[in-house]
Every structure is written in structure tokens, then in C-alpha cells.
């Protein structure tokens, strides 16, 4: 019998696994030195870049950039004001030991960084079954707006694209070194690299601007991730249909969460599913987290997305939202009822 990890790896290789892999049941998740990219406490503080974050309590349970506190507001200042964290200054052996023992879902539920209560690590014998994924927050675009404020960042992209291009290059260089450290000091299968490019009905910047400023750097990041021996999954909220062919071209292995505003996801899966694993595809906004959401509605949405995207494999179930707790139960219930046997139907293989 295949382990959950082997089963999920098949989906990441764009093959048809035995059953639909699911983030909530088949994965171990960690962050590699989480304070690097985001403040992890539960009041207010800085990450290693000096960006200022304020923790938002339940139901959000996550830090938000502290409004109005910026490292710089003029992109021409990035060289002076942005201090790239010294990756050599981190004791990675010690850090990795902390990270693999940390309670990931505790962090997501507002506990800050705490060790697993049972002292377990993702490498333990009884967790060998699970696929290991590290989440890297604040990709190059997100870091830009964390540093200078969202609107300033967007205006810089329009007004000073050359300077932004230099920033993106430098940022990619740093991320690549970070990925090398992860490859060396951790034993992981997948990197989930966050950089949101989509709003609900369009991309923040035009696809062409994205192609000029971000794509070449992302291509280098993807390559470095592969060279470090890990699968590259890109996370972008919102509408990203126009750049899916580009992501495929630069070697991105998987994309999440493919929000339902990507209305052509079904067609795109047919076209690119042999090169890109589709992760998610759920209409979280209309089905999962509204005051009128019901367990039946959540289950129906599970089936809709799976029927649309899971045929032929190369698909992983991953729900997104404000708080998993509010919809995880019916979601997992339907996953066991429908997703676990989905590929037993030859028509779905």
C-alpha cells in the first residue's frame, strides 16, 4: 500500500493517485524560521526585515502589516532602507530542530510558536506517512508592499518599473539563498511559495507588467527550488488565469488555491493538468464561510470542485479561508465519502 506521501507525490507528478490527496489529512506543514518572513507573536512586532506587524486576534489569528508603518515609501530608497536578513547568521541546525517540532496549526489558531505538545517532530516514524511541505510567506511582491504599503508599491510598479525590476532581482537572489538553506538543513518534499498576484476579478498589475517585472525572477526561484530537491507550489489568491501558461512555462509544479473566480479553471486543467497540479479550486467565499453556509453546501462545493478538477489526477484538495475550523468538518467528511474513492471510478482516472 502506498503511503499518503507517495500518493500525494503522484498527484504532484501530474499522475493519478489512488485517492485524492488532501491538505488537512495527508500533509505535515512547517515554516522554516517563521520569524524571518513574518512576526509570529500575538501582540505587535517586527520580522527579520524590520517590517512591522500587528497580530489580529480570533477569528483572524494572523499578523497584518501595521497600517502606516513603512520601511520606505519611495522605491528609489530600497537599497538604503532594506536590510536583507543575514542567512549565514542563523544557526540552521538549531532552527530546523525547532521548526520540525513546532505546532503548525497552533500558529494558525493564534498560539504563536509553540512546540508540539507531545514533543513530536515531522520526521517521527509515525509521521513518515505524511507529505512534508514548508510554507514560505511574503514572496517578492508581498514583501514589497509589506515594506512600503500596498498602494505605494502598486504606484511604484507603474511609475518606476526599472527600479522595481532591480528590487525584484535582489529579492529573488535572497529567496534563492533561503531555498538553498532549506534544501540543506531540512528534509522536505514541497515548498509552498506565497506571492499574491490576484484580486477577485483581475490581477493587481497587468499580466504584461507581471511578465516583465516578476516572471523572470520567479523563474529563477522555481529553478533554485528544484535544484534544492523540492517541488515548487505557488500560492496566489484571486484571479490568476492569464498567467497560468507562464507559470507552466517557468516550471511551477503546482498552483493553489485557484479561487473560484478563476472561472475557466476546468478548461485550464484540461489543457495544463499534465504539467501543473491544481490545488484547491473551491468557492470558499460563497460556500464555506458565509453566515448562511451549511454543511450540505460545503459538501456540495467539495464535489463540484472535485468533479471539475480532479479527473485524470494532478489534483489536490486544499480549502482556504479565514479559519479552517468553521468548515473543516463537513469538508473532511465529504473528502472521506467522495474523494477517497473518486479514482475507483475508472471514468475519473
Amino acid at each position: 500500500m502506498m503511503t499518503k506521501r507517495e500518493n500525494a507525490l503522484k498527484a504532484y507528478r501530474h499522475e493519478t493517485p489512488d485517492y485524492i490527496p488532501c491538505f488537512l489529512t495527508d500533509f505535515s506543514m512547517i515554516q522554516c524560521c517563521p520569524d524571518l518572513e513574518r512576526y509570529t507573536g500575538i501582540t505587535r512586532g517586527k520580522d527579520y526585515w524590520g517590517c512591522d506587524w500587528t497580530f489580529e486576534p480570533a477569528p483572524i489569528n494572523a499578523p497584518m502589516p501595521t497600517p502606516g508603518v513603512h520601511l520606505f515609501e519611495d522605491i528609489s530608497e530600497w537599497r538604503d532602507k532594506l536590510k536583507f536578513p543575514d542567512l549565514e547568521g542563523i544557526d540552521w541546525v538549531k532552527q530546523a530542530d525547532i521548526d520540525v517540532h513546532s505546532d503548525f496549526f497552533g500558529l494558525l489558531t493564534g498560539k504563536g510558536i509553540t512546540p508540539n505538545e507531545d514533543g513530536s517532530s515531522i520526521y517521527d516514524e509515525d509521521k513518515k506517512d505524511l507529505l512534508r511541505l514548508a510554507m514560505i510567506l511574503n514572496g517578492p511582491f508581498e514583501r514589497l508592499h509589506a515594506c512600503m504599503g500596498f498602494q505605494n508599491a502598486l504606484m511604484a510598479i507603474a511609475a518606476e518599473p526599472e527600479e522595481c525590476r532591480e528590487y525584484f532581482k535582489a529579492m529573488a537572489d535572497w529567496k534563492i539563498e533561503y531555498l538553498k538553506k532549506i534544501g540543506k538543513y531540512y528534509d522536505l518534499d514541497v515548498i509552498m511559495f506565497h506571492d499574491d498576484y490576484g484580486t477577485n476579478d483581475r490581477m493587481f498589475m497587468s499580466p504584461d507588467t507581471w511578465r516583465k517585472l516578476i516572471k523572470p525572477e520567479l523563474a529563477r526561484i522555481v529553478k533554485a527550488c528544484h535544484e534544492a530537491g523540492m517541488i515548487y507550489e505557488h500560492h496566489s489568491c484571486g484571479f490568476v488565469e492569464p498567467i497560468i501558461p507562464d507559470l507552466v512555462e517557468i516550471g511551477v509544479d503546482a498552483l493553489d488555491p485557484i479561487q473560484a473566480c478563476n472561472i475557466n479553471a476546468g478548461k485550464l486543467k484540461k489543457k495544463y493538468g499534465n504539467k501543473l497540479t491544481f490545488v484547491g479550486g473551491f468557492n470558499n467565499q460563497d460556500a464555506f464561510e458565509r453566515s448562511d453556509s451549511t454543511p450540505e453546501g460545503i459538501k456540495a462545493e467539495y464535489r463540484r470542485a472535485v468533479d471539475l478538477l480532479a479527473q485524470g489526477g494532478s489534483y489536490i484538495a486544499f480549502p482556504m479561508g479565514v479559519a479552517f475550523a468553521s468548515f473543516a468538518e463537513p469538508f473532511i467528511e465529504e473528502h472521506f465519502k467522495y474523494g477517497m474513492s473518486f479514482y475507483q471510478n475508472p471514468a475519473n482516472k
Binding site: 504606484m155 507603474a158 484580486t199 490581477m203 493587481f204 498589475m205 497587468s206 507588467t209
Partner: peptide, 14 residues
């Protein structure tokens, strides 16, 4: 109409 994006609109407003 999707012909310009957020950065261009912000610059015009400025």
C-alpha cells in the same frame, strides 16, 4: 473594461 489595472488607476488618481 479591464484595459488598465490598479497601478495605472492609482497613478491617474494621484
Amino acid at each position: 473594461a479591464g484595459e488598465v489595472y490598479v497601478p495605472e488607476m492609482l497613478m491617474a488618481a494621484k
